[in-house]
Nucleic acid binder design. Structure first.
Length: 286
DNA sequence: CACCATGTTCCTTG
DNA sequence: CCAAGGAACATGGT
């Protein structure tokens, strides 16, 4: 499941598995995920290239590769969309349903699978150019966050999903951070008090950081699950219990608030579900 | 059949 | 021009 923490854990998992491996062959089963890149461009660049590094930027994965015939390293940008997964499979296993791209690496193959095909695997790095600051970097300070909110009449929950404000927050952690900060999701972004703004800033770091720690402690085993690994795929798979139990408000409409027992409410903002505690995150809540 | 789903982008409206 | 809202994308689960 792909918000910042899940992408971070995936990057850490894949990095050592890919480092130093040479791509023998590229199969594109769904050209749509290449975005502006053509199949021949991808094959030309990747076939013969060697994986060097991998890092995360917002919800994007950035692969660094060494070209086949010398030259400067180049990058491939990946995004999991809503349902994307990336893992290594033994070459004898069949490609899973909805495989978008597969890279032959010798005995194994790297698979990008994406049921809904909203994800990306592309040479076009344009998307990451417009991202806002990384919430877990030291340079992301409360003052900067609060000033970026100034003047906005958009609900704060909706504002948090704008990747230019802060990179990496998605629909789940937006609700979680607002709950932790005790900020009403419908409050206009520019109208948060100084204290609310500061609490939200701190809650974002806390919630994302905690999710990374939780994800990092769970053993990842992608190779023997037939491509149905669901560790971070919300609502299914091995990690479901663990994952869902960590969420205090998301997808818990009607359940008692862990802090006060009031039933959690679900509302719709900008066409997406928001979950919150009407008491803890109410107007007069402190 | 209806509605819901972790994300991004495009189009329309005000 | 800008901000905000809604729909589209594609597939599957309930």
């Amino acid at each position: 499941m792909p918000e910042l923490p899940e992408v971070e854990v995936l990057a850490a998992h894949l990095r050592p598995l890919l480092a130093g491996k040479r791509i023998k062959h590229v199969s594109v089963l769904r050209p749509k995920v290449l975005g502006l890149t053509t199949i021949s461009q991808l094959k030309e660049q990747l076939e013969g290239a060697v994986f060097q590094g991998l890092h995360r930027r917002g919800k994007y994965l950035v692969f660094t590769l060494q070209p086949k015939s010398a030259g400067r390293p180049f990058r491939v940008v990946g995004h999991l969309g809503m349902t994307g997964r990336m893992f290594l499979l033994s070459k004898i296993e069949p490609l899973p349903k909805h495989t978008a791209v597969a890279l032959e690496l010798g005995n194994e193959r790297f698979v990008f699978q994406d049921t809904r095909y909203f994800g990306r695997f592309t040479l076009d790095a344009c998307a990451i150019q417009h991202l806002g600051p990384e919430p877990l970097e030291e340079s992301w300070v409360a003052e900067g966050f609060r000033s970026a909110l100034r003047g906005s009449r958009q609900p704060i929950k909706t504002r948090l999903l704008d990747q230019r404000l802060v990179a990496g927050i998605g629909n789940i952690y937006a609700s979680e951070a607002l709950f932790q900060a005790r900020v009403p999701p419908g409050l206009a972004a520019g109208r948060l008090t100084r204290a609310q703004g500061h609490r939200l800033w701190a809650a974002i770091r806390e919630v994302l950081g905690e999710a990374i720690r939780a994800g990092s402690t769970i053993p990842l085993n992608f190779s023997n699950m037939g491509g149905t690994n669901g560790l971070f795929y919300f609502g299914s798979g091995v990690g479901k219990g663990t994952y869902h139990e960590r969420l205090l408000v998301y997808d818990r409409a009607g359940a008692p608030c862990v802090a006060c027992g009031t039933p959690i409410k679900r509302i719709v903002q900008a066409n997406r579900s928001t979950f919150y505690c009407p008491r803890c995150q109410g107007r007069q809540a402190r």
